[in-house]
Computed example of a mutant assay.
Amino acid sequence: MTLRKRRVKLEDIARKLNISIATVSRALDKNPRVKLSTRDKVFKMAKAMGYMPNQIAKSLSSGKTNIIGVIIPRYDEPFFIEVCRGIDHYAREYDYKILISSSRNSFEFERENLISFEKGLVDGIILSPTHETETFVHIKNIINKGIPVVLFDNIREEVQGADHVSIEDDKASFSAVEFLIKKGKKRIAFIGGIKEKKVFQDRYKGYLKAMQEYNITIYEELILHCDSLDRECEDAEIQKFFNGLSIKPDAVFTCTDNYGLLTMKTLLKLGYKIPEEVSVIGFGDLGLGEVFVPSMTCVAQPSFEMGQKVAELLIDQFNEATDVNHRKKVIKLDTKLVLRDST
């Protein structure tokens, strides 16, 4: 049986070199009070012994961890993966790392994650609220304790002291549906997500506004608000929806790329020709639409850029003077319609 090695500590290096623990600590921090020759000996010994600095101990003395906490509703959504890539890309340029946690679309888990991060694990927090988040007291409490916060995507209400980054979901969906209408589509179906989530509410508003402005009949039978929070159930819901229709749609606007791809898969199985008989538009443009056959027209959401922007705003807060009130910034990023074979 192999015995597990004990982690090398400062006192182990000090004992080997017959110097004080304080001298070892100062030497590793490159303190000018320690002679260069002593510093060299300490660094060589630390390397030889496999010493790794204790980040928690360092953060206790410096007040910084150089870690950004990120809380997202789910791990399996390409949008959140792209946002996290953007956060990580920007943060690493400034020597920050990210710690990602999922709220699993639960307000309680969101609150628990915030409390965990509050205990000194991170320097600041980036958060996308869940569809269950109706009160923002837990976020305001974090801000009041001096922890910088940036919110993105599903922001139900403005929170003082936190920066906000999002897109204009209603305008983006209006433009997509307007495009379908101008192509002569009259029976346009809508597929959105859970009704309580603000981004889906806003995308539905954009759909309704376009239909009403152009006097296009809104068929309740052609509207689906998915209740599922995982892909397998979403697939089943969409299949059931199309199998039960008595009105044949000539276009479908969907609120995510995933809904769009599941829609096209189901329609093709049912014998629809895309785009000859029915056009499909997704929302996100996160890569999968390009490789599906036929390729899918999408509202391109700047997910990676959104990640970079939230990281930039958070790191800017780190550099603010601690004795001034933070002036909240609200950033709205642009979207565009990327045309492909499905329309």
Rank of each mutant, 00 (worst) to 15 (best):
T343E: 05
Y214K: 11
V150M: 03
K41M: 07
T297S: 11
N141F: 06
G282W: 00
F107V: 15
R33H: 12
V165C: 06
D334N: 13
I21Q: 06
K240A: 15
F179I: 07
S103F: 01
K97R: 14
S59C: 08
F109V: 11
V278H: 00
D235L: 14
R104G: 13
N325R: 15
S61T: 14
V330I: 14
L288M: 11
I143D: 02
R156L: 12
K185F: 12
T2W: 14
I100H: 07
I223M: 08
G260S: 01
L60M: 13
F43S: 10
R15L: 10
I13R: 01
V34M: 06
I147E: 00
Y214V: 02
K195G: 09
I274S: 01
K47G: 04
K44W: 04
L333G: 08
S279Q: 10
V330Y: 13
A22R: 02
I19F: 01
D257S: 07
E82L: 12
K309G: 06
I155S: 06
K97S: 15
E277T: 00
K44I: 11
L262A: 08
V252F: 03
I181C: 04
V137P: 10
A46L: 01
D95Q: 15
I72A: 03
P73M: 03
F43K: 11
E118C: 08
A251D: 01
V338S: 11
T38Y: 03
C226G: 09
M306E: 12
I331P: 01
L208R: 11
C255G: 11
I72M: 02
R92Y: 06
I191V: 09
M296P: 01
P302E: 06
E110R: 02
M211K: 05
A27R: 00
K186Q: 11
E305S: 09
Y94P: 07
I81D: 12
E168D: 15
Q308L: 12
R7F: 05
T135K: 14
L267A: 00
P249S: 02
S37Y: 13
K186G: 07
K44F: 03
E132N: 09
E134M: 13
K9I: 07
R327E: 15
N154D: 08
T254Q: 06
V310Q: 02
G184L: 06
E221N: 07
K183I: 06
A91S: 09
R39Y: 01
C84G: 02
M45H: 05
K332T: 13
S37I: 13
E276A: 01
A27L: 01
K269P: 02
V34Y: 03
V324D: 05
S303W: 11
V324L: 10
R26V: 08
R85K: 14
N54T: 07
T133N: 09
I56R: 12
I142T: 10
Y75D: 10
N141R: 14
K336E: 10
Y94W: 09
K265C: 04
I188C: 00
T38C: 08
K195S: 14
G192I: 04
K182R: 14
C233P: 12
P294V: 04
P53W: 09
N54L: 03
L114C: 05
S25G: 00
I188F: 01
R340D: 08
